[in-house]
Amino acid sequence: MEDKKKYFRIGFVGAGTHANNMLYPSLTFLDDFEVERVAVCDLSEEKARKVASNFGVAHVYTNHQEMFAKEKLDGVVVCINAKGHPPVVRDALQADLDVFCEKPTSITVEESEELAELSRKTGRFVMVDHQKRRATAYQKALEIVKSPSFGKVTMVEAKMHGHIYDNLFNCMMEWQIHNIDIVRAFAGDVKEIVARMCRLADNRASIAILLTFENGAVATLNWGSEAGGKGRFCERIEVVGSNDEAVIVENVRHVIHYKEDESKEWAPNWVPILKNQTTVIDGYVGNLREFMNCVLERRQPVPNIEDEVRALRVIYAIAEQLGIPAEWTITIGDR
């Protein structure tokens, strides 16, 4: 006899490119849930109606407050833009709704701190969609790191190259904040930061960062707009333990676990089945599943708004050391 599927009524704010490419399609692969797609809201009614038609959403709104007031929802997905997230998340929390918010949750640390305080006050969750936490390769690596044989994490080496944005701050907030979040997943909270940069242009640079963590571990991060682009070689993490073990994740697809005298490797077999879908391998499906389970079970999701506050503090500290202005130039609706 098949297990009974869990039921979840979900609403959406945002009908842009990222939501259409990654979040809405992920609903199809939540095979352990019956998800009622109650409503979608966007400032563009045309975009909202297109989402409703393409993904089977019942109702369309252009005012999120009206949607929160009229619809019975278990949770809401907010995917607009860092500048637009805070007022919508705030309204959702005040409407007694749990929130799944795309990263970054805000442009400033202070705005996310205010959301964290409101989350604590209302008792409602804000989960942040740093999807790499539930990417298949990183899940396997985290399982290895948390095993008793691995010992204490002592060192992390990471790189993240790729996207060229209008300026370096946009790149750090939209792209390299992923690197901060996943490194924190392995090593914990950051205590000290030292950053250096080779600047090529206002929006092009190579950046080297040394982190010290509260638990004593250290990390080196290498970020840039050069060498690797968006493709096969843009992302890599190696985590070293105190018991002569380490694990490497190459570009979110390939895992190598090595010890003194042996190593094991994992990669997707690319058979077109559920577990090999891009939205599954990259972690979007896993994050949405975690959000829904946490709402139903009333347990705090991870990563949450407190994690985002810590990640944003690191980003701002790096930008300040490097003299990078905290200037946000991405237009609302671009996501």
Rank of each mutant, 00 (worst) to 15 (best):
D42R: 00
D42C: 01
D42G: 01
L43M: 08
S44L: 05
A48N: 03
A48T: 07
R49Q: 06
K50A: 06
V51Y: 00
S53W: 02
S53E: 09
S53Y: 02
N54Y: 02
N54F: 05
G56Q: 04
V57G: 01
A58N: 08
A58W: 04
H59L: 09
H59P: 00
H59A: 08
Y61C: 00
T62H: 01
T62S: 04
T62G: 03
H64F: 11
E66A: 01
E66V: 03
M67L: 06
M67S: 00
F68W: 01
F68R: 01
F68D: 03
A69Y: 08
K70A: 10
K70R: 13
E71I: 03
E71H: 03
L73A: 08
L73N: 05
D74T: 06
V76T: 14
V76K: 05
V76H: 06
V77F: 10
V77Y: 04
V77E: 02
V77S: 02
V78Q: 01
C79T: 15
C79E: 05
I80F: 10
N81D: 05
A82Q: 13
G84V: 14
G84P: 09
G84Y: 05
G84F: 10
H85P: 12
H85Q: 02
H85L: 02
P87D: 15
P87K: 15
V88R: 01
V89M: 06
D91Y: 15
A92L: 03
A92G: 07
A92D: 06
L93A: 07
L93Y: 15
Q94M: 09
Q94A: 12
Q94N: 13
D96E: 14
L97Y: 10
D98F: 11
V99L: 03
V99D: 01
V99F: 11
C101P: 11
C101S: 02
C101Y: 03
E102T: 10
E102G: 04
K103F: 00
K103G: 08
P104T: 04
T105C: 06
V109S: 12
V109W: 14
V109P: 13
V109Q: 09
V109L: 08
S112D: 08
S112G: 04
S112T: 14
E113S: 07
E113P: 00
E114I: 08
E114K: 08
E114C: 03
L115G: 05
L115K: 04
L115V: 13
L115R: 07
A116Y: 12
A116K: 09
A116D: 14
E117F: 15
L118W: 15
S119Q: 14
K121C: 10
K121M: 09
K121S: 12
T122K: 07
T122R: 07
R124Y: 15
R124Q: 10
R124W: 14
F125G: 03
F125W: 11
F125L: 06
V126Y: 09
V126S: 08
V128R: 12
V128T: 15
D129F: 01
D129T: 11
H130M: 10
H130W: 04
Q131T: 13
Q131G: 09
Q131F: 00
K132N: 14
R133S: 06
R134C: 10
R134N: 13
A135C: 12
A135S: 11
T136N: 06
T136C: 04
T136K: 00
Y138W: 07
Q139V: 11
Q139E: 11
Q139I: 07
K140T: 10
K140R: 11
A141N: 08
A141P: 13
L142V: 13
L142K: 08
E143C: 12
E143D: 09
E143T: 13
V145D: 07
V145T: 06
